[in-house]
Design a protein around this nucleic acid. Sequence first.
DNA 1: TCGTCAATTTACCAATTGGTAAAAAAGCGA
DNA 2: TCGCTTTTTTACCAATTGGTAAATTGACGA
Lengths: 218, 218
Amino acid sequence: MKDAGKNGGTAGKTLGAQPAVKHSRIQTRNRKRILDAALEVFSAHGFRGATLDQIAAEAGLSKPNILYYFDGKETIHVTLLNQLMETWLDPLEQMNPEGEPLEEILAYVRRKLDMAQAYPRESRLFANEILQGAPRMGPHLEKRLKPLVDQKAALITEWAAAGRIAPVDPRHLIFSIWATTQHYADFEAQVNVLMPEGGVFPGAATYLEGMFRRMLKV
Amino acid sequence: MKDAGKNGGTAGKTLGAQPAVKHSRIQTRNRKRILDAALEVFSAHGFRGATLDQIAAEAGLSKPNILYYFDGKETIHVTLLNQLMETWLDPLEQMNPEGEPLEEILAYVRRKLDMAQAYPRESRLFANEILQGAPRMGPHLEKRLKPLVDQKAALITEWAAAGRIAPVDPRHLIFSIWATTQHYADFEAQVNVLMPEGGVFPGAATYLEGMFRRMLKV
DNA sequence: TCGTCAATTTACCAATTGGTAAAAAAGCGA
DNA sequence: TCGCTTTTTTACCAATTGGTAAATTGACGA
């Protein structure tokens, strides 16, 4: 029922998605088209709300042709999620233990907000997945996200202990950064109703910088 | 294709959902059962991810029996959303113009966090709907949510102008309150992975009170 | 006890949808 | 140009799912 197809089991399952094997010119191009289309459709309708026909139409390919490139709907979704996780982790990874604590955290807020603005579809895809209880992402959260968060939380705790920022629960701090920045992407439909039309992001950037600066100032 | 059934068009469409007409004992009971079941299923899987069969099973009724009480899947969903909106607005409505500004806002944060804890399914139902672009809620956001937010935003602006709280963009403040509190319900799956098991809400309450207090202190 | 209306079940559809088989059409190196 | 592989299309399925028709059962006042 699953795992038909292309990749003979060369190495073990990498948890990653990319086949990591052969990729002809046209393969690369069409896989990308499909993933682009799938991002558009999945982020707008969720996993079950999206149909292969929609993705096919968006990608400009036929449905069977899409299934020539990917094992099935679920495989496409998982591939997208795995790719996304790396992009998503990056801004947090950039938080530098050697830097000035307050500025490092504020820069992180800034990067997250920039991502919400630049990649709202990715944000929504992720939000959809977590909202449904992370059915296809559980392991990834454990294996990739948790260690990174643990590490950065320890760093923030050190900074606080050294009196370089105000004492805070590092995990709740991180949650509040995620929540406030991603809100502008995930709840865009609501934000657009409530904000007097026109770029909300500049105002958001100012507001959030002010808020987290006050929060962390010793 | 739609709007078959029960209610002859007595008055105009109220935008609300409740038929506002006759309700026998058993009607009341079964409608409630169905809505309870639907909340469970819709909040866990989203609109398209939920099936009438699931709702029927959860409610302990047969599918055709469910369609005897509601016109269709969409009607159930809309009914739920409309009910929810009132519950959702309530904590903001309680913000008292006569009260002490900082305490009023902190109490609002507290109420929202309590709701996220007590009604996570409602929070997720709402989040799902907004994430998909509020396809069945657009009018409601305009007509009910926006006026209230406008009013409370004006109030906060007054408070700030009077120097009773620090100057802030009231709408971004409200967004950040929504985002941070609802995060614990909507992203529960993620929070549970990252927080050392055991009630996160007490810690969240402390953290958020501290954050917004610092944010608003003059 | 009966008759009537409300409530429920049984038996079905028709449309949608994820997926497959196999033939046709491109690509492309020699 | 030939022959072989990769890519794409055509033609289908089987399962799921929202919804309906009609028969059946239950509630209950007269």
